[in-house]
Amino acid sequence: MFEDFMVNTWIAATLVAVVAGIVGFFVVIRGASFAAHALPLSAFPGAAAANLVGVNPLLGLLVFSGLGVAGISQLARRGRRDLATALSLVMLLGLGALFLSRTTEYFQAVYALLFGEVLGVSNADLGPVALLGAVSVALIVILFRPLLLSSVSPELGEARGVSARLMEALFLSVVALATAMALPVVGALLVFSLMVGPASAARALTNRPLSAMLLSGAISVVTVWAAIALSFISDWPVGLFVGGLSALTYGAGRSWAWAGERGL
């Protein structure tokens, strides 16, 4: 499973895992897992739309997840974030249904967008994935302190001159970027599990914010590596293992914390 044609897979999957784990740390501490679930789902019809007009699917993903971010932040100004997220999601999925019905692509392509195509990453795919990943991680590193403060309490942030609305918009934009880079590789449904599982486990394992973020990235990488290896050996879909292992790490993290609290 380390043959030449697999090298790209390992590289792409590792990049995706690092980014999802690191961005996921903030998804989890901000309680934004619904947004992290909705953005990839609203973004995936973007790839179909891009096919329709004949541009790079990544562009379509970026535009659609950007629309998702704009929708969520605009609607959330006047109401709750979960409702804003749900509304943006259904609007974009509606558009998505239209675009998907117009494409001549066969069912397989849609399936790949939803569940990922981890075993078929081309050389040409790697560049954009690396670039978007680097931008996402750089943004998280730059925003780390104000975003952390605003996540603990938007009001404490405001009192220190950190605009809660700006932080929310920037945070969602980073999730959108991470989504666009990760979606073609692991699929719309599994980006979410990588953003939530490892970070939830990490926050149970350490008290330190920065360590928790790095640990989340590491757990995410191990999860993805193990998933690819298991998929290769068993010939079962990689998605099964990504999802299953994410849930497993989360469970393990919680048990560890539970045992720790009771001095076991």
Binding site: I29, I142, L143, F144, R145, P146, L148, L149, V152, L156, G157, R160, G161, V162, A202, R203, T206, N207, R208, P209, S211, A212
Partner: peptide, 17 residues
Amino acid sequence: PMRARDLVALGLDGNRL
């Protein structure tokens, strides 16, 4: 995942990048 000292430190420079 945040200790008391981390929150106090954010009071010092939580607005810095």
